[in-house]
Design a protein around this nucleic acid. Structure first.
Lengths: 133, 133
DNA sequence: CTCCGTGCAAACGATTTGCACTATG
DNA sequence: CATAGTGCAAATCGTTTGCACGGAG
């Protein structure tokens, strides 16, 4: 199955990048609808899923209910506002700073952080090994 | 408004702690239903919300669609299995280790991490200042 | 007795899916 | 011209809420 560059996919991608923000599917839908009024929300969802699967954009599954999509697909950390729920990027260039210093760089008043290491647990490694035999 | 220790609240809390796992509301509901068959899922949701608000348990809003609740209310990091979606605790005692070393301690094969710093963004700080004047 | 907590069902918000149609490569 | 993608509506999933009743303090 190969990717086709449809009109709607192109506009969705372009508007996400132009926004320079971490939009939810429906925020992006509102923007794209102004350009292509007959587009459906389902199309936006489908394309965001496909584009993040292809590593063309990033997907954020953190900080609350709605997924947000990141115009920048490369690895980097995020900073989240508990009041308005916006998410900003943190450049890896500042690695080694404390969370407070990290926040200060982008003007945030830091109250905490969430760290989740991701991987495969011992049980699932074992199951995988068994399958490969 | 003060907290009452009802039968259902007691069982919900006890079973979450006994499990020593990070359960979703419906996983915990399945467990509790065996002990108290007429309990409703809404009661489980309400109590988990109240107990985490009172810092008696922790709430995890990361790693995917469903919230998970943590029997351990104190600050600590988590490690997430991409295959079975379980979440384990990481003890702060190991601070200073790399993410890979962190994973090795608990037997995980680490593939990455998610870091989100939490705070108040510059705009929201300004709004707050204005309100206080 | 007060009023917090409960069970039930219905409502809700975000996301996904089945279907017939369209259009890319 | 094959088949990936679309628009629409309905379905689904996790969670919340309104309401009348029940029980803890």
């Amino acid at each position: 199955m190969q990717l086709r560059m449809t009109n709607q996919r192109e506009i969705i991608l372009r508007e996400l990048i132009n926004s320079q923000r971490h939009l939810t599917a429906d925020e992006l839908y509102d923007i794209v609808k102004k350009i292509m009024p007959r587009i459906s929300l389902a199309t936006v969802y489908r394309n965001l899923e496909i584009l993040s699967g292809a590593k063309i954009i990033g997907k954020l599954e953190i900080s609350g209910r709605q997924k947000r999509f990141d115009y920048n697909p490369s690895e980097h950390d995020h900073i989240y506002c508990v009041v308005c729920h916006r998410v900003d990027n943190l450049e890896m260039a500042h690695k080694g700073l404390s969370t407070e210093e990290f926040g200060a760089v982008v003007g945030y008043a830091v109250t905490g952080y969430r760290l989740e290491i991701v991987g495969v647990c011992p049980e699932c490694q074992r199951m995988k090994d068994n399958k490969e035999k």
